[in-house]
Design a protein around this nucleic acid. Sequence first.
DNA 1: ATGACCTCTGGAACCGGTTCCAGAATCCCG
DNA 2: CGGGATTCTGGAACCGGTTCCAGAGGTCAT
Lengths: 349, 349
Amino acid sequence: MAGIADVARAAGVSKSTASRALTGSGYVSAATRQRVRDAATALGYVPTTSAVSLVTGRTQTVGVVMPSLDRWFFAQVLEGIQDALLERRYDLALYGAPPESAARREMFEHFLARKRFDGLIAVGIEPSARELERLVAFGKPVVAVGGYDVGTNAVSIDDEAAARIATDHLIGLGHHEIVFLGGDPDGRRTSFGDGRRLDGYLSAMREAGFEASARHVQSEVTMPGGYGAAVELLGDRRTRPSAIVGVCDEVAVGAIIAARRLGIRVPERLSVVGIDDHAYADMFSLTTLQQRPHQQGRAAVQLLMWQLDDPDAPTHRMYESSPLVVRNSTAPVDDDASAIIGVGPLGTG
Amino acid sequence: MAGIADVARAAGVSKSTASRALTGSGYVSAATRQRVRDAATALGYVPTTSAVSLVTGRTQTVGVVMPSLDRWFFAQVLEGIQDALLERRYDLALYGAPPESAARREMFEHFLARKRFDGLIAVGIEPSARELERLVAFGKPVVAVGGYDVGTNAVSIDDEAAARIATDHLIGLGHHEIVFLGGDPDGRRTSFGDGRRLDGYLSAMREAGFEASARHVQSEVTMPGGYGAAVELLGDRRTRPSAIVGVCDEVAVGAIIAARRLGIRVPERLSVVGIDDHAYADMFSLTTLQQRPHQQGRAAVQLLMWQLDDPDAPTHRMYESSPLVVRNSTAPVDDDASAIIGVGPLGTG
DNA sequence: ATGACCTCTGGAACCGGTTCCAGAATCCCG
DNA sequence: CGGGATTCTGGAACCGGTTCCAGAGGTCAT
């Protein structure tokens, strides 16, 4: 493998001049620069990255941590990050960190300390106190995607507002019995804005005076998870709601499939709203709040690069707008159907 | 940041002794080793990776290329790779390389040449001649996952056999009019074993004497893609098949949803088989050929590590077995329904 | 007692670049 | 035409580790 010394020799200059010519820093005459470049291409010279990083302290790599890959949101964010990094010739080091996993501990305790990347993008990570400590010790820029601030730079939709808009949309259609479907008890452990979405739903219900009928049905945040929980929820006519807010589209779609399975017509007998505008939303005519995680990934890289170019640059908190996309999974409440539940403690039929 | 020189000073030894003590190579007395280790932990010493790789020539990083992230298979393989690498304290550098994209060219032309990883795992990549050339020039171990051999090490299911088993299963149930759904004309460009699956289907049809009725309906290899193509395919009663082999479960599930939408009962009026045993397969009662891409990812890492430990080690071609999982999306052909199509060129009703 | 061999340690070279610094050449301005 | 600023170049130090080599001390067989 040709080193820079070989290039310098071939071009008849010193190592230092060759280096300047190729990196474009310092004074080099145009003629010399050209000679060096020609020599470099002729020899197929590629700088050894470890040598470069050793002296510059920069790795040209960005680390990405995310709890999972098979949720649409994460895969999309990752693709967005990939695209943006490729343009800048940065490498991408990926670390999986499911909540409360050994992998996650490893990541924060060991991999972070190795400092093999110039900055970190944390997707769907709510750092614990200890993790935050490690993040600070890491000493390099961090940007969060998808809900939680990791101190400084962050990009996401306004999860609480999104869930509120979704809920208000249903309330506007006359629904009272609205269930929030998906996530765990406090909506936090699944990582992601899930908890805030639950908050948004609850506050919308409260403001409309439906606090008493607010209900959170838990489920894994996946399509089969939503399906399973919805089959159970909708199976009992007495407790069946007239509308569902899915914590995300995957769960919402699961609910729609469950409804079809049970012969409950959507949207005539059951309205469903999601959050995401998933690739599947269109084929299920799902009304949802749109977000574009791909763009969020790109934006995260942008923020990180600003920070890398100028460590003193101001940090940013970016909210992507999340417009309501009305399709055909929501409709005005069907009073005949809701009468089954009734308003009082015991429906009169 | 404490360097090894600081550790050495704290332990009262030379740099070289400190290095030996920490890496565990060469002679160091037990007492000295302990002193050095204590000093290292006391100072929170973490070796600078670029310095280490500069001299050892190893990066402790594995590169992974894949065309896409949002197909279940790829995400699963990636998670498997992640797990296995984590255990070995290797980093994972991820590169997206959609077929015929600029990113893919970049990857092969530039990123590969940087040699920032000790080995490469190529998932769902069928390298062109030029790409193969670059791979060879890369000069480090490569293992392929998901169909195509990249020279040496590879792991996948036997795609052709899988599709054949799926098709034979339908034939055994009395089906003649069986459509292969998904992929592009020659099934190659989508990367993945798609082309070979088509071959397997075709040869099964041929062997059963149904060559004339073999039909490949193209679609994007996604659930909405399969859905859209199936809506069209099933919409016309005259050309409607009695069974479908999906190129993968996502497409097969799309077809099932399309059938439900059109009021065609599965499996009574339409049988559907997939390949994958996707997380969604169970909730759609999809009969399918099981593969476990997570395991394949782990196996790929294993193969790569063997090669790294001993460059002269023999290479391997691993086939994962793919058992047929019979659920409830396939049933004996419904003769009344198939009579609509009939055996002759024009059905007599 | 001698020498061969093994264990242990430190000094110095080395990996492959970048950057500091000094010196030479050229330029511009008063 | 002198002198300071600017442009250009090469030598050497340096980034932070690993590894080669030489030498010291100890053990054991001859």
